[in-house]
Write a protein that binds this DNA or RNA. Structure first.
Length: 813
RNA sequence: GCCCAGGUGGCGGAAUCGGUAGACGCUGGGGACUUAAAAUCCCCUGACCUUGCGGUCGUAAGGGUUCAAGUCCCUUCCUGGGCACCA
């Protein structure tokens, strides 16, 4: 190190990476204050790294290196989300084992990550498929079970009747199994659930505290949780009540039928009706995907059963439909065709009555010939409730029903409890045992982990765990009699819901789940990942975090303080994917250009949150810029290596217009770094460099500005800046430097500014005047400006709007 | 269908608080250097009208608020993400 090389090559990058490794720059002292925990969503090892990963992990690395330069002790870990369905598919395809495929991919990606030079603390690397990881997941599940956060109930899944296996939603294509082509059926099976709804209120309320998250993600979560205040209403039926939930109790008098799910227990009594049974069967031959349910053709059939309207006593027909799902709510909804779009369409289709009970509050005409009237308004045809506004009526009707014991006010969430059972092999075994005498019994803590057996043969016909007696046969932890293990495994979202905490303590292995480091180092200061995780992963993690807090395992309320959701990488306007054949292999690019050029382009080409269009021309441009920077450093070597005193240089040039520009650019770079807008950090670096190239004389200013430039660019192009730094300046890493806060640089002393002049709101010219000029002086300057004069000629000034340092708008008549 | 984003020159994008639209870069054109090419450097590059000076239009489309709108409000269109078993 220390010798200026004539050209920048991949050898330079490898040498720098070796230097960082020797210096141990990326393993923080966990006892220190000034911590900064930066985390990128860990990778699912489905093959090699693709451009989306390069973008994701570069973003995390930029945050990390920026914070190191700001003086923080940065922890940036790396790991692998190693359980999952694709491993099973690959194993079937290649007649191998999910583990083999997974570890092979991990090895390849690990090599690629190292080549990228990310500032990772490799000493805390974790793999979720290792027993030392998932044993604590099993342990956490047992603790949640003890706390009453776990229960078992039946729920519907996609069943492939030919392959005799449960299908993931993505394995259902147009209602058929992807491998067999058979029509998929809904099948109800028992599954383990986590009570995320117990935390619904807190998950909602704490969104307001997550000010470091994009507003759009918070909005999405708010809508996903979907808190609503409504009324549970009982419709009397033969032998019981049919419960429905509505947020529009004001429309209750407009109910003309009740719709129930095909699985509803009311229908059991009607099994003798052949036509009805056939229809029920047809309804069950659809997927459970909500988007499909919402868009498919709505079908229904009159069951012949009648429900009694809780207020009028009227007999209302009960219809079975394909769009009401048993798992959501009570599996029944009241239908008000006049005031609900879906009910309206359904009523039109089957000739059911449409009874108007709401009219517009402002008395404007309202026809129900073409469409439902779904707004709130004023009640009509509603007996004693007629004349009330919708809002008043909702309360009045709810009060009436409560008094009559036919209903009650109810807060309802759209959020449903989390089904964590998967009928798959490559996942964490659920630590439960089934005993004929004791029922479902949790595994004893001392018997953890329940190890996933790997000496199995993997085939297409269902989970090998179900066929493995060695795995299944055990004894009941309670009574000691022979019993059977649960053969389902956890949803892989469970692993990704607590890994951020385990990273800190991964080295404890089997000794403990966490130690005091989680109290000092959580929450994660900056989290980076795809926006596609806005609701599920990010909500599950928040839930598990709160559950861990209530178990005394962690101490803060939220796991992630700041969140950046990065956009996709596109080529020719569409997402890069193998199936579309439009991928760019990052490894080939790195070989051709080097890591930093790829990093620089990918940061420069688009703001992190937006999608990024791949461009060959763009990467060549980035290569050109960095080459210019390198060549400039070689050319100016004598000046730059001269060890000029740089401490108070900017003060000396405080009144120089050149310094005003430097200051403005640095302030922009600084702000953009803070808000994670790295594309303009890159362009700011280019501007600063252009300034440097144009600078003549003033070696001390050049020297000081150049040092600033290397520090500013370091997070984006760490290898190049480190190589130049070591060659020209100190013999220690650039990361030991401090990023100058914009407020620590001297304020430029220029007293004038240039601003636009409008006449009647249209831009007509610019004037340069003192920053402290008043309106009269500004007007005078405008009136003596040739271009502006042209538009003021022969007019009378009516009004002057003057916003100092921004705009002068002269209104004339 | 529902929820959430995005739409600015030939292209990627900038404009942080409603105040000079198009920074920075790419592409293209012209020039310098060279026997020549590459590399490099310099100038031009939103559209239309105009010999020029200059003017008009212009941020998906339409409307509105404002002295002033890419930015705020309403409507529509298009593209993308999510919709609970891909991760």
């Amino acid at each position: 190190m220390g010798v200026m090389e004539k050209a920048y090559t991949s050898d330079t990058e490898l040498a720098i990476q070796g230097f960082w490794e020797r210096e141990k720059l990326f393993s923080p002292d966990f006892g220190s204050s000034d911590k900064y925990y930066c985390l990128s969503m860990f990778i699912y090892p489905s093959g090699l790294m693709h451009m989306g990963h390069v973008r994701n992990y570069t973003l995390g690395d930029v945050f990390s290196r920026y914070q190191m330069l700001r003086g923080k002790r940065v922890f940036q870990p790396v790991g692998f989300d190693a359980f999952g369905l694709p491993a099973e598919n690959a194993a079937i395809k290649h007649k191998s084992h999910p583990k083999t495929w997974t570890y092979k991919n991990i090895d390849a990606i690990r090599k690629q990550f190292k080549r990228m030079g990310f500032a990772y603390d490799w000493s805390h690397e974790l793999l979720t498929c290792e027993p030392s990881y998932y044993r604590w997941e099993q342990w956490l599940f047992l603790k949640m079970y003890e706390k009453g956060l776990v229960y078992r109930k039946n729920t519907v899944v996609n069943w492939d009747p030919v392959d005799k296996t449960v299908l993931a939603n993505e394995q259902v294509i147009d209602g058929r199994g992807w491998r067999s082509g058979a029509l998929v059926e809904r099948r109800s099976i028992p599954q383990w659930f986590l009570k995320i709804t117990d935390y619904a209120d807190e998950l909602l309320a704490h969104l307001d505290t997550l000010t470091g998250w994009p507003e759009k993600v918070r909005t999405m979560q708010r809508n996903w949780i979907g808190r609503s205040e409504g009324v549970d209403i009982d419709f009397a039926v033969d032998g019981g009540v049919l419960k429905v939930y509505t947020t529009r109790a004001d429309t209750l008098m407009g109910v003309t039928f009740v719709a129930v799910a095909a699985e509803h227990e009311l229908l059991k009594a009607l099994s003798g009706n052949a036509a009805l049974s056939a229809f029920v069967k047809e309804c069950q031959q659809t997927t459970v995907v909500e988007a499909d349910l919402e868009t498919m053709e709505k079908k229904g059939m009159d069951t012949g059963l009648r429900a009694i309207h809780p207020i009028t006593g009227e007999r209302i027909p009960i219809w079975v439909t394909n769009y009401v799902v048993m798992d959501y709510g009570s599996g029944a909804v009241m239908a008000v065709p006049a005031h609900d779009t879906r009910d309206y369409d359904f009523a039109k289709k089957y000739g059911l009555e449409i009874r108007q009970v709401i009219e517009p509050i402002d008395g404007r005409p309202c026809s129900l010939d073409k469409t439902a009237f779904v707004e709130k308004g004023k009640l009509v045809n509603s007996g004693n409730f007629s004349g009330l506004t919708s809002d008043k009526a909702i309360d009045a009707i709810a009060d009436f029903l409560e008094k009559e014991r036919k209903g009650r006010k109810q807060v309802h969430f759209r959020l449903r409890d989390w089904s964590v059972s998967r009928q798959r092999y490559w996942g964490t075994p659920i630590p439960m045992v089934y005993c004929d005498a004791c029922g479902a019994v949790p595994v004893s803590e001392k018997d953890l982990p329940v190890v996933l057996p790997v000496d199995i043969e993997f085939t297409a016909d269902g989970s090998p765990l179900k066929k493995s007696d060695a795995f299944k046969q055990t004894v009941c932890p309670k009574c000691g009699q022979p019993a059977q293990r649960e053969t389902d495994t956890f949803d892989t979202f469970v692993e990704s819901s607590w890994y951020y905490a385990r990273f800190l303590c991964e080295d404890l292995k089997n000794k403990a789940m966490f130690d005091e480091r989680v109290h000092h180092w959580l929450p994660v200061d900056q989290y980076v990942g795809g926006v596609e995780h806005a609701c599920m992963h990010l909500l599950y993690s928040r839930f598990i975090h709160k559950a861990m807090r209530d178990l005394g395992l962690v101490s803060c309320d939220e796991p992630f303080t700041r969140l950046l959701t990065q956009g996709m990488v596109l080529k020719d306007g569409v997402k890069m994917s193998k199936s579309k054949g439009n991928t760019i292999d990052p490894e080939a690019l790195i070989q051709q250009y080097g890591v930093d050029i790829v990093r620089f382009f990918i940061m420069f080409a688009a703001p992190p949150e937006q999608s990024l269009e791949w461009s060959q021309g763009g990467i060549d441009g980035s290569a050109r810029f960095l080459k210019k920077l390198w060549n400039f450093s070689v050319e100016k070597h004598d000046v730059l290596a001269a060890n000029i005193a740089h401490e108070k240089v900017f003060e000396k040039y405080q009144a120089d217009p050149a310094y005003a520009e430097i200051y403005a650019i640095w302030a922009q770079i600084h702000d953009d770094m803070d808000r994670g807008q790295f594309n303009t950090v890159a362009s700011g670096g280019m501007k600063l460099f252009n300034l440097l190239v144009a600078m003549n004389g003033n070696d001390d200013l050049l020297y000081a500005t150049y040092r600033l430039l290397l520090i500013g660019l370091h997070p984006l192009v760490p290898h190049i800046t480190e190589a130049l730094w070591l060659a020209l300046f100190e013999n220690q890493s650039i990361l030991k430097q401090r990023w100058p806060h914009k407020n620590d640089l001297p304020k430029p002393l220029d007293t004038t500014c240039t601003m636009g002049v409008q006449v009647n709101g249209k831009m007509r010219g610019t004037i340069t005047l003192s920053k402290t000029a008043n309106a009269a002086e500004a007007l005078l300057a405008a009136q003596s400006n040739e271009k502006v004069q042209h538009f003021l000629k022969g007019t009378k000034v009516v009004k002057v709007i003057y916003v100092p340092q921004k705009i002068l708008n002269v209104i004339v008549a």
